[in-house]
Simulated assay, not measured.
Amino acid sequence: MFFFFFFVTAVILFGILLVTAFLSFLVRHSNHSSKIKPKKANASLCAVLGSGGHTTEMLELIKNFDNEFNMRIYIIADTDTISEDKAVAHEKSRNNEKFVVEKIPRSREVGQSYFSSVFSTLNSCRFAFKLIYRTRPDLVLLNGPGTCIPVAFAAAFFDIIRLIDTVIVYEESICRVNKLSLSGAILYYLGMVDSLIIQWPELKKRYPRAIYIKDFKEKST
């Protein structure tokens, strides 16, 4: 009975992902450009922070936006005890009080089996859907941690059905030279992001729909 429930759940989840991916190409990618500049005065930015180098890379990326996004939303895994302190320190250095740190369950812990991660990912998606619907960010920035998958899925879904209008950008880690990370590969093949940025030209040959970072900067200026 347990395996039957698991099989049905996995099939339903896979079907939803495929439908979301298909609609992303038909609806989202036809309406969004590669520009990430906000189109309104009170724009909000949502960034998913991960442990270790992910958070450092993300905060370095966010520094490029200055005051273009007056509201910052940081999403971290509920077991991450370091990223919150870094986000708070970053915003205090800017003398900015318009930010919040939100926590959702981690979709997959280090060393967790892929079998059990199906259920933890579903639980994470439940929290991500509520969070994205409540905050309705104009820009979602992702760069690799597993927690970004439920967030990307929720943002893409609500954008498809036009409950929110958001742009999703994924920047692959600089340490990924020959192939995308698991998170990057999932988002690339499902087409749930508007722009997937790579930092090495070698990756462009393997992933032609990805955008080399130098080309992206030229389009965004």
Results as ranks from 00 to 15, higher is better:
G50P: 03
R72T: 07
M192N: 06
I12N: 10
E171T: 12
S183Q: 06
G191M: 04
D85R: 12
V88T: 13
R108F: 05
A47D: 04
T81G: 10
S117F: 06
E102I: 06
R106L: 10
K217C: 12
E57M: 03
S83F: 01
L190R: 04
K92Q: 14
I132Y: 00
K63I: 12
F119R: 14
S183P: 03
S24L: 02
S30N: 11
T135E: 09
L139M: 06
R108S: 10
G146Q: 05
F22S: 15
D138G: 02
F153K: 01
S124Y: 01
I164M: 03
S30V: 15
I211L: 11
M192L: 15
S113Q: 11
F158W: 06
E202L: 13
P150N: 04
E202Q: 14
I198W: 01
R72G: 02
F3N: 12
E91Y: 10
A21E: 05
V118N: 02
F153S: 02
E102D: 08
A128W: 00
V169E: 00
E102H: 09
L17F: 09
N95W: 06
L18N: 11
E68Q: 12
N31M: 10
F7C: 10
S51Y: 13
S173T: 06
K63G: 13
L139Q: 05
G15M: 07
I161C: 05
V169G: 00
A47L: 09
K214R: 15
Y212D: 04
H29M: 12
A152F: 01
R28D: 07
K35C: 13
E171F: 14
L59K: 04
T9D: 13
H90N: 13
L187E: 00
S195C: 13
H29Y: 09
V169W: 01
D78W: 14
F69H: 00
I164R: 01
P38C: 08
R134A: 14
S181Y: 04
L122W: 10
P150D: 04
L141M: 11
Q199P: 04
A128I: 03
A43P: 01
Y170C: 01
V118I: 15
P105D: 12
T166Y: 03
L139F: 05
M58R: 02
R209V: 09
I198R: 00
I62R: 02
M1Q: 10
I12Y: 12
V48P: 00
L17M: 12
V118F: 08
R136V: 05
S195L: 07
S107K: 04
K86L: 15
I76H: 03
L196D: 03
P145L: 08
F7I: 10
A89N: 11
C148Y: 00
N95F: 09
S173I: 01
T56Y: 08
S107Q: 07
V151M: 08
I75T: 03
K204W: 06
T79Y: 10
S34P: 09
T121Y: 05
L45M: 11
I16E: 11
N123P: 08
F127S: 15
Y74F: 15
C125G: 07
R162M: 06
S220Y: 12
L196G: 02
E172A: 07
V177Y: 08
I75V: 15
F158D: 02
R206F: 07
A43W: 01
D159Q: 03
R136S: 14
Y170W: 05
C125A: 11
L196H: 03
I211G: 00
L45T: 01
F129G: 00
N42Y: 09
I213C: 08
S173L: 05
P150R: 01
M192A: 06
